[in-house]
Design a protein around this nucleic acid. Structure first.
Ligand SMILES: Nc1ccn([C@H]2C[C@H](O)[C@@H](COP(=O)(O)OP(=O)(O)OP(=O)(O)O)O2)c(=O)n1
Ligand SMILES: Nc1ccn([C@H]2C[C@H](O)[C@@H](COP(=O)(O)OP(=O)(O)OP(=O)(O)O)O2)c(=O)n1
Ligand SMILES: Nc1ccn([C@H]2C[C@H](O)[C@@H](COP(=O)(O)OP(=O)(O)OP(=O)(O)O)O2)c(=O)n1
Ligand SMILES: Nc1ccn([C@H]2C[C@H](O)[C@@H](COP(=O)(O)OP(=O)(O)OP(=O)(O)O)O2)c(=O)n1
Ligand SMILES: [Mg+2]
Ligand SMILES: [Mg+2]
Ligand SMILES: [Mg+2]
Ligand SMILES: [Mg+2]
Ligand SMILES: [Mg+2]
Ligand SMILES: [Mg+2]
Ligand SMILES: [Mg+2]
Ligand SMILES: [Mg+2]
Lengths: 552, 552
DNA sequence: TGGGGTCCT
DNA sequence: AGGACCC
DNA sequence: TGGGGTCCT
DNA sequence: AGGACCC
């Protein structure tokens, strides 16, 4: 893993169980030989290496994942959509779909063409502007803060440490709410794209399960956690109409994994006695922080599942992933279901960025760079930074531009100080243009993506309301700068096409899909589909993006 | 400058003068044509480009620089040294010298051999252990905090924003305390090693200067600043015996530069009317943030002095330094003496590191790595991290090892998670050894420096008193790890040789110097001076470092 | 050419 | 992980 | 294969 | 500045 995800990971180990609770009998699991022996029945014995640290059983952690998040928000914004199969699109891609669509085979991150083949009646909604999703995400987070400390992961996932609330609920819960993972439950990994996604193969059934007389203290606390999860989900729904699925367990690793077993609009608890069994057969990839690279390195030493990982020593694992003993200890502990990392509130975002992608813009020396794209992105970024500044009393110190080219598969980044003058989007655009020149100066390549980002925020220094004021000249004489400037009007059209599907993308689509979009939005007449080589050189298409080259 | 130093620089511009004071008459300077015309008399006219931002004249900034800092501390620790010419050494180098030694030509960063040639009676003190200097530095900072907001720069420099104290001293100062920069004062750059150092050519003379009747408000505030500076220096001396020199001006740039004009144990104020004149003839290198690279880039467009920099537009400067408009604006403003960056307290250190250097250790595959060096460094680092942890309630997340090799002039760095277990210096040493293997694995080179650093601190997570407890085993069976381990005693010898000159270094010295050291410390008998090639292979010397190879 | 540090990329 | 810069 | 983010190196 | 990883 080379230590990506290790911010999280670093907090996992070595946080000893909180002393008071750890002292109580039965609270320490992991490292006991019972665990090492009980976890399978089709392999009678395997020389597992016991975990080097113990599980903290004193916490109750919720993992809340909003159901088909973007699609759900679109339904809330336009209730007519409800009941129909719906996919949210970004350029050529269905990024998610509602559960009606999923029943028809429309998966997440599926191409529009494939989705339409599977479900001809599929309704498409463009979701390239994330504003509304960010708003609903913020509402959800505020709700969850009422139940404990919250750590967000992406826009639709939240870990909630509700241990204190559990301790305060002195009248013990009589029931587990929602599903309780049964032994031997069948699980499957989701798709090739999201191998870390986990799903159960049976629909959730049980509403409540009695807490047995012999239940341990930890189990009773988890039962209280299931009641809290039910409460939290109810508030999300009643206050904002948001449906969520929830996992309840003693740590973040397990809570996230178990929550995926019953979805949508459901919840599942994992009891410690089932933890090691539960995680044993899962692919190592389900561990947060284990991605494609680490997976393949572990495969090289024969570890595809957590069970196999357990059979290796930390040294062997360290050698395989080429990393430190700390990393190896983390992986080995995870393979046992052990994760002592705390729930850490992340505070305001560390990066605010906007991006756009396209089929390819040929940037050559001497050819003017496309001002409208940077103009639109800069305008959008400045809008976001301004509201961030108002909310958090801070300003970014760094502007970063990232480009992806057709030729190279990796991205190039360049950064510079964020324009601090009251220059607004014009100053940002000029700085971004300098960065773009640097980026493409090296190799005249076809740019397929541009991202601009504000980061490295300094506190207590709100931007002087930048708005769209013209940049104050630093030098007295008329500027010798002859960049590809257009009038300032461009900056007054923030997010011009956002919410509307890109013309170029549309033209590359099958005709039926084009027609469907055309019914919803008025668009210029579509010429013949340009070949990619002709399009790249800016010589044929009259579309939004390539037109910048025709214009000079 | 590629934006190094720009954390500072970013705060310089665009901080508009504080509204209340800026509104008062006479407070805004810079950008006025009088400034652009008044600054020279041997060049009757030059087409200066006016600065694009205005000087904030509302502040009073002190720059305090402790005199011959390490040497001064050594004198305080051992008063017998006082009155004699003294140099503080690190390996082959005199890192600083007291003013008695400087009068004999012993400069800062001069080789011991050269220093001894210049001053045969020079007393040498090894200053490789910085502990005591850190302690006195902390005392000084605490004193200065009584006079305003403090920003530290290295161990012996402090910016103090005493604007508030000035405003509170309602009874106007009748005198400027210390020196007031006279028009036409001759200045010279210090040495080739420290081109940014500035010195006056005449000793300070005046004790006080009457504040004239026609003095402006800003000048009266600066006069108050000189009184505060005198107070601060008096407290430093009375409480801790520390002598300092101080510059007083309206910004950090000017305060630092003017403070160097009269040293030691003195102070100088720069009035705004003299600012542009003062800085005009100085080499661009004096600007903090302009180092060797930026200097040579600016020289390429004909800018060696600030005066020449002023004649360029920001665009021209930006092109030359290959950087953003923000950088260029910063440089151009500095060339006019304008610097609106605030004094920013930096908080606890972001990195804690220890290092050692040597003439060359050949690391080859199969040859055991030198445990004693890493052992000693790890022990020292852990001691420092432990006390940091106690003081700041935090712990490092990252361990970094840096090596310099004889072959390549640049350094290589590798990092990994900081061992978080209560493994103490043993765990740190193991992790460092892994990093060292990575570093030298690439090319079997002669290592001439090793640095290990703790960084990326997380708050609220003190290390469980690591001390020297043996590392708790993570894996049950005896460890298959066969690193070059020695007993734990090594860890009980923190900083074994610190404060004592290195044996190897000593042997490379002229005999008289060797004898001088030998008189102070007991050392093993010195064999013939080894040739550098023989020494590098670990085949000849029996010294501290190469002996690790002989031993296996 | 010591033995530290800061921040940017 | 490397670089430029600072004391 | 979108349009975002986190942290490490 | 690039990379691995996450939604
Ligand atoms: N590679 C990805 C993964 C996710 N998302 C967005 C779209 C999703 O709506 C949202 C949440 O991601 P999930 O994986 O939780 O997917 P959903 O919430 O859409 O579906 P589910 O009901 O399976 O959670 O994040 C994205 O844009 N790109
Ligand atoms: N800041 C901008 C400017 C333009 N465009 C896109 C939208 C236009 O459809 C297309 C063509 O550029 P034009 O400048 O010709 O666009 P208009 O004709 O709509 O605007 P104007 O009349 O101001 O030139 O570029 C954009 O996305 N963002
Ligand atoms: N390249 C450097 C520069 C400085 N120092 C240390 C030794 C100095 O004593 C201390 C302070 O640096 P100064 O440049 O302020 O030098 P001095 O304080 O020694 O002398 P001066 O009286 O000129 O300030 O930092 C160092 O180790 N290496
Ligand atoms: N952690 C260590 C161990 C040793 N050394 C140095 C000091 C010794 O002078 C030299 C030789 O190594 P030895 O192990 O032979 O040192 P000693 O003989 O002093 O210690 P011991 O008797 O424990 O081996 O290495 C060191 O700097 N740091
Ligand atoms: Mg999700
Ligand atoms: Mg979801
Ligand atoms: Mg994973
Ligand atoms: Mg100094
Ligand atoms: Mg000094
Ligand atoms: Mg400089
Ligand atoms: Mg670094
Ligand atoms: Mg980055």
């Amino acid at each position: 893993m080379t230590s990506a995800e290790s911010a999280d990971f670093r907090r996992r180990q070595h946080a000893e169980p909180s002393p008071a609770l750890a002292a109580a009998e039965g609270l320490l699991l992991g490292g006991s030989s019972s665990l090492a022996a009980c976890c399978d029945d089709d392999a009678s014995f395997f020389p597992s290496v016991e975990p080097s640290c113990t599980q903290d059983l004193s916490r109750v952690i919720l993992h809340v994942d909003l159901d088909c998040f973007y699609a759900q928000v679109e339904e809330l914004l336009d209730p007519k959509l409800k009941g129909q199969p719906l996919a949210v699109t970004q350029k050529y891609l269905c990024v998610t779909s509602n559960y009606e669509a999923r029943a028809l085979g429309v998966g997440k991150l599926m191409s529009i063409v494939e989705a339409k083949r599977k479900a001809p009646g599929l309704v498409l909604r463009c979701g390239e502007d994330l504003t509304r999703y960010r708003e609903f995400s913020a509402k959800a987070e505020k709700v969850l803060r009422g139940f404990g400390t919250v750590e967000r992961l992406g826009m639709d996932e939240f870990y909630v440490d509700c241990s204190r609330l559990v301790s305060n609920r002195t009248e013990g819960e009589a029931y587990f709410h929602g599903n309780v993972l049964e032994p031997g439950a069948e699980l499957r990994a989701d798709t090739a794209y999201r191998p870390q996604d986990l799903r159960g193969t049976k629909a959730g059934a049980e509403e409540t399960t009695l807490v047995g007389e012999g239940a341990s203290d930890v189990e009773r606390r988890l039962a209280a956690g299931t009641a809290i999860a039910a409460d939290a989900r109810r508030v999300l729904r009643d206050a904002h109409g948001l449906r969520a699925s929830c996992g309840i367990a003693v740590n973040k690793l397990l809570a996230k994994l178990i929550g995926g077993v019953h979805k949508p609009d459901d919840q599942t608890v994992l009891l410690p006695a089932r933890s090691a069994d539960f995680i044993a057969r899962l692919p190592v990839r389900v561990i947060k922080g284990v991605g494609a690279k680490t997976e393949s390195r572990l495969r090289a030493i024969g570890c595809e599942t957590c069970l196999e990982l357990r059979m290796r020593t930390e040294r062997e694992i360290a050698r395989a992933v080429g990393d430190s003993a700390e990393m190896a200890a983390f992986l080995h502990a995870c393979a046992w279901g052990i994760d002592n990392s705390p729930v850490v509130p992340k505070g305001p975002p560390k990066v605010v960025s906007v991006e756009d992608s396209f089929k390819g813009i040929a940037l050559e020396k001497g050819v003017p760079l496309p001002p409208a794209i940077l103009g639109r992105l800069s305008s959008h970024l400045v809008t976001r930074v301004d509201s961030d500044s108002a909310e958090h009393k801070r300003r970014p110190r760094t502007l970063t531009l990232t480009v992806r080219t057709r030729e190279e598969r990796s991205k190039r980044r360049f950064s510079s100080p964020y324009p601090s003058q009251a220059g607004g989007c014009i100053a940002v655009e000029e700085a971004a243009l300098d960065l773009l020149r640097k980026a493409v100066g090296r190799s005249a390549a076809e740019v397929t993506l541009i991202n601009i980002a504000a980061s490295n925020f300094e506190r207590g220094a709100p931007l002087a309301a930048s708005g769209f004021e013209p940049r104050r000249r630093r030098t007295a004489p008329p500027s010798p700068f002859k960049s590809a400037r257009r009038d300032q009007e461009a900056c007054k059209r923030p997010r011009a096409e956002i919410g509307v599907i890109d013309e170029e993308v549309l033209r590359a689509m099958p005709l039926e899909i084009q027609e469907e979009y055309s019914r919803a939005f008025t668009l210029p007449a579509a010429p013949k589909k340009p070949t990619s080589s002709a399009r790249g050189r800016g010589k044929s298409a009259t579309g939004t993006i390539t037109s910048f080259f025709a214009s000079k």
